[in-house]
Write a protein that binds this DNA or RNA. Structure first.
Lengths: 348, 348
DNA sequence: GCTAGCACTCTTAATGCTTGATTGCTAACA
DNA sequence: TGTTAGCAATCAAGCATTAAGAGTGCTAGC
């Protein structure tokens, strides 16, 4: 498509998107001519614009107005800057990102949250981080801890942290040995398993091994089930949701409300990205009609540690967005995060 | 103040607020006369309105408009309905509330969240629930659980749940007895203590008892400190934040943004209620100027279990609000919740 | 003390006019 | 053939004017 464009058409189209992104106003032929193409006249630019309009790249809001980019124009623009990721951030900007993470060795959740916050702060757009929580969560061991009052706390230690939500009630007094035996059996069944498979394997092994411990087993399964349902969509962190309201695209309450409703609902956020191929480094989607966030551009980056996809981070902003900066921030964040996480894995 | 009003003035003022709440439009003398006072003429109503305006209850947006209630008028209105809490909800409404909680025996947090949700759903206003989390949280016991790889998990069991956030690293191999001794000593120091006092008492006892266990003690104190800072403001649950945008009072994006910023920030929410005397059953505040939620009325109810204040629930809505319904819902919710919680205490 | 009637005030919406921005077209030119 | 200058045509946006409508306050009479 874009290959058919002449060199001058490309320059004009790029100039138009550039101007529109900074001013937000329809761009006139003379704007382009005076700032980007002084060697020709505005009449020439006009005839080129006419051609670009016929090709579906741009349009006029009304006869006596300048031109405004359409989706294809944004796509063309993003492709052209995506190929050149050099020097998109200043030194102080990269330093700012590094600064934020150099001392962070906490939970993975805190890191994700902080990443979303930094992205939003730096770009001034709404940002999000979707953790793929259930992938590769493996049970390391199960512990039963006896508490006062005939209760036992079920501890499930995974490679991503400890689950310790709920105490289960025991029948009358049980001896320590009873719990020890139960613990041993539980570990034989659960240790080394991936948490997203429990439903499958448990049914097979349950009757053989854990005859006398139905009560405890039920407790453990309950906890796992709750954990799985709570985490199956992946944790979603949204930062700077209200920043979108600063942009004139969302200057009416109705649209703003729709936007916020989508953004603050975990499920609809997950749905937005459910079809995403996480092997793709960057994805830029402009104006997804059916999603409730039309009028938006969504830029996502897949964050990996080794080959594991840790999550997707990204920015939701108006179509008229500072793509260069956003892609720069996401790109640098990628590098920083994978360093941070690898280091903290060593220490953890 | 309101005692000085003649009976007819009271009727007219009440009628005016009633009409304004339902229509949202300035109320004219003939509106009041035709629907509430057919026995007199609109001219009579006019002269009464004139008087009420002089008294500061109402005002005219402009000369040729009807009257609009001011704060004192709302206060007068609320007082008049607060005195009469009978039959504010229909049977199906009270059934709806009971329904929602009859099977709920989960965490206190879930109940609070659900309460906020029900309040918002029933009233169609933004609602909130502020848990007073740190009050009366008492440490029942502390447990050290040895995990693989020279780690130990610190479990702090309180009367409100289990804190099990973080593993601590141990020096090389330690024997089970070492942990047992440490556990015993930790319990001697911490068991039975209220969590909001740790800083005070720990310093006194630390040197005497826990000589050889500095490492572990530090871990425990860290966990407690993090817990305290995270929970000291009280959990705040806000439901239906976007509902406010449905009301014409928040029809411009700037105001909407301010409102949402206050509402969704835990700290500023806590601040809004920090000066509240929780012994007061209901508090109605209309148009608190300095708070960022001016133009709002805030109705709160203190929720108690026995004598302990469990939290505050309430509604934030436009001044022009269905006070009758809101107070009805909050009142009935109070009764329902205290029943639910007392029952679940028995079983827990 | 209440009421009818009327003049007065002010908002709101509609209308028409002017200005300015920008284009598309055409004719001339390199 | 591509480029340019000039000019008429188009349309939004702002502004003033007007008319209609709503509601009040006042006054005189009951």
């Amino acid at each position: 498509m874009s290959k058919e464009l002449s060199d001058r058409k490309k320059r004009i189209l790029h100039a138009l998107v550039d101007l529109y992104i900074t001013t937000g106003q329809p761009v006139s032929s003379s704007d382009i001519q005076s700032r980007y193409l002084p060697e020709v006249s505005s009449a020439t630019v006009r005839s080129e614009l006419s051609a670009l309009e016929a090709l579906g790249y741009i349009e006029q809001p009304h006869t006596s107005a300048g031109r405004v980019p359409l989706k294809d124009a944004y796509k063309f623009y993003v492709e052209s800057i995506d190929g050149d990721k050099t020097n998109m951030l200043t030194d102080s900007e990269t330093a700012f990102i590094r600064e934020k993470f150099i001392h962070k060795l906490g939970h993975i959740e805190d890191i994700s949250k902080e990443a979303a916050k930094v992205i939003s702060d730096m770009t001034n757009y709404t940002s999000f981080f979707i953790e793929k929580t259930l992938v590769n969560v493996e049970i390391e061991e199960v512990k039963l801890v006896q508490l006062k009052g005939n209760k036992a706390l079920v501890l499930i230690v995974t490679n991503k942290g400890v689950i310790a939500d709920k105490a289960i009630d025991l029948k009358e007094d049980v001896k320590a040995e009873y719990l020890d035996t139960a613990t041993e059996l539980l570990n034989r069944v659960f240790a080394g398993r991936r948490i997203d498979e429990i439903d499958k394997f448990v049914i097979e092994e349950i009757d053989e091994e854990l005859q006398g411990f139905g009560e405890i087993l039920d407790g453990v399964l309950d906890i796992l089930r709750i954990y799985v349902t709570e985490h199956s969509d992946g944790n979603v962190f949204v930062e700077g949701a209200l920043k979108m309201l600063d942009y004139p695209e969302y200057n009416n309450v109705e649209d703003a409300k729709n936007f916020l409703a989508v953004i603050s609902d975990k499920e609809s956020m997950s749905e937005l990205f459910i079809d995403d191929d996480s092997s793709i480094e960057f994805s830029v989607r402009i104006g997804k009609e059916d999603s409730g966030v039309d009028k938006c551009a969504i830029i996502t980056a897949a964050y990996k540690v080794g080959d594991d996809v840790m999550g997707q981070a990204g920015v939701i902003g108006p179509e008229r967005m500072d793509y260069k900066k956003v892609i720069g921030v996401l790109d640098y964040m990628k590098k920083t995060l994978s360093t941070v996480i690898n280091n903290s894995d060593d220490e953890d």
